[in-house]
């Protein structure tokens, strides 16, 4: 049982996210995070999902994703050869006498302070998941007012591209899932 980061290339159409997220919930797979955004190709969006499960479960997830008509390609981001990041914004309580301390703490983790008010600081971090977790942990002793994370996104290193895995045939709308041995 480990964390798996799955990158999914989908057609940029309404309802795609529901189909992908629905597949996870319907079949009892838990998503830890889900991030969606457009790509340089306007017809496509890319989803990054992080889930926990055995290799067999993840293999089943990939196959079920590939069956969705609007899913064009699926890849599991390898732990060793992918860059994965998530971003967090944390609004932390910091009275005047604590501000410098929090600023230094943020700096140690490679985070930035992006807003300052009388009693609070807003810290922004873009980093690997464990580093972000550690920062949140460190800041929690000051009192976190609110926070948000984008969920993990990532790309494989090197010259490979998810578009190489694209299903071979696309009709004017899009075409049906292929099967392979």
């Amino acid at each position: 049982m480990g964390h798996h980061t799955i990158s999914i290339l989908v057609l940029n159409q309404s309802g795609v996210l529901v189909r992908v997220a629905g597949m996870f919930s319907r079949r009892g797979f838990n998503i830890e995070s889900l991030a969606v955004g457009t790509t340089h190709v306007p017809e496509y969006s890319r989803i990054t999902a992080v889930m926990q499960g055995s290799d067999a479960i993840v293999a089943q997830v990939v196959k079920q994703l590939e069956k969705l008509v609007e899913v064009r390609a699926v890849e599991i981001l390898p732990v060793n050869t992918a860059v994965v990041r998530d971003m967090a914004m944390i609004k932390v309580k910091a009275a005047q006498n604590k501000k410098l301390e929090v600023l230094q703490l943020a700096e140690t983790f490679g985070a930035k302070v992006v807003d300052i008010s009388n009693e609070t600081l807003m810290v922004e971090i873009t980093s690997g998941k464990t580093n972000t977790d550690a920062l949140i942990d460190a800041l929690s002793s000051y009192g976190i007012l609110e926070m948000i994370r984008t969920g993990v996104v990532g790309l494989q290193r090197g010259d490979c591209s998810i578009y190489e895995k694209e299903k071979c045939e696309i009709s004017a709308l899009f075409d049906t899932a292929q099967v392979e041995a």
Binding site: C168, E169, T176, V179, A181
Partner: peptide
């Protein structure tokens, strides 16, 4: 002809 299924090398060895 739409997508034509072909036996892959892996499939063949299986």
């Amino acid at each position: 002809p739409r997508f034509q299924w072909e036996l892959s090398q892996l499939g063949s060895s299986l």
